[in-house]
Design a protein around this nucleic acid. Structure first.
Lengths: 235, 235
DNA sequence: ACCTGAACACCGTTCAAGT
DNA sequence: ACCTGAACACCGTTCAAGT
């Protein structure tokens, strides 16, 4: 159980001098989400943290879904600008895409809730930021304009898929009180004990699962897609 | 608002003759999820549908997450056997993977909640079924054993990514009371009105977004990955 | 062994009333 | 204009009591 640290006001029961801001609310939400997962963000815990009532929050944000997208957008915006800075001039589009993808991976690794938040707000600002950045590199790759959307969409889906899986793994580990390698170990032994008749392949994968590196595998997938983009289409 | 059809017992307030079964519960859950989305599955609505009390359900299933995974597993199991039957003998592994992927796409299209349920139960039975089937084809493709996991993982992530996105789109459309093409139209016009300085690429994509075909694009992504698998690795 | 349904401890959200 | 906090309509889950 987590101790609830009641926020202490410096003085008495005065009214707050500076009014609550949307940014303040979002920042507090991110903190809550990072520290205690998706279940940790509640209008009650949040308002407690902000030393106000639940109703006050509704003056600044529409509802919980809005709050989640806003928090997600803040993280994505930061990630995009950071990854923009990391691309040196003269880098190939492939390299830029790899860096962008890695930045996304690391961001979601640090804030697992972003994974599911992204999926739950299609066509919203966070997604737009990512599409735009991916798209610019796809154009730079020389993909014919007619294929821009399909290509961007494929990369996006893959990234979101990994994001979602990572978020789920993280939450599973948290639920069971395990760290990443303990969880991997547990799943791996479970796989190695599967029925050889029914799950021959999955069984044989247990070893690779145990020792794999999520980040490396993620990048390998990106490379697979990049190679696919570069290869001639034969039917 | 949906009319709640109170289930009518044939006679009086007798005790139910045949006891509730796990399968019955799961089947009713699937129906509820299909008809009214993820929010439609509630222990109260479910027990009403089954003409029993909320507590009764807990005798057969552990909790809501268990129920959701079980419902998801039922759909995936059916999808896997159906797709197995659709692969003609002598088909290439590529063709088999395409068929498998399409079967998954259609299943998730018909049951959007499966998209998020899949993501939320990592390492569980539904995922295992998919991994196994993908894996067997990857082996047939002649991918070197050391790369089995990375390759299967990439395909899986992509499929789950699309699944999640589709589920989200479906739910968004449902929330706003729009059909698919109206939603597409709305998002597309929103994109075409984006700031050209900030979102040049996304803006240019509006047209393609409006007329695109989710299923085709999904398959194009699969083909991209398949081509990547078949291409030599150059660094 | 299985079911009943009230009760518990939560949620997100609203809204009259305050300043 | 912004905040307060009680109240509403829900949840998932538990559990004594029944059959």
């Amino acid at each position: 159980m987590v101790q609830k640290a009641r926020p202490k006001r410096t003085s008495s029961s005065q009214r707050r001098e500076e009014s609550l801001s949307r940014e303040q609310i979002i920042e507090a939400s991110i903190e809550l989400l990072d520290n205690s997962g998706e279940g940790g963000l509640t209008f009650r815990t949040l308002s407690e943290r902000l030393a106000t009532g639940p109703g006050a929050i509704y003056w600044h944000i529409a509802n919980k879904s809005d709050l989640l997208t806003a928090a997600c957008d803040t993280i994505i915006a930061r990630t995009m600008t950071a990854s923009l800075a990391s691309v040196t001039t003269g880098a190939t589009p492939q390299a830029a895409i790899r860096l962008l993808a890695l930045a996304m991976f690391d961001a979601i690794d640090a804030h697992p809730w972003v994974g599911s938040a992204l999926t739950r707000s299609p066509g919203q600002s966070p997604m737009l930021r990512i599409v735009e950045r991916i798209g610019q590199q796809i154009r730079a790759l020389g993909v014919p304009p007619k294929k821009h959307w399909v290509t961007a969409s494929a990369l996006l889906s893959y990234i979101l898929g990994v994001a979602g899986r990572n978020a789920a793994n993280g939450q599973l580990a948290r639920t069971q009180g395990l760290n990443r390698s303990d969880l991997l170990e547990a799943v791996s032994t479970a796989w190695s004990q599967l029925d050889p008749e029914e799950y021959p392949f999955t069984r044989s994968l247990a070893g690779q699962l145990r020792s794999h590196d999520d980040r490396k595998d993620f990048l390998a997938g990106i490379d697979l897609i990049l190679r696919g983009i570069g290869s001639p289409h034969r039917r």
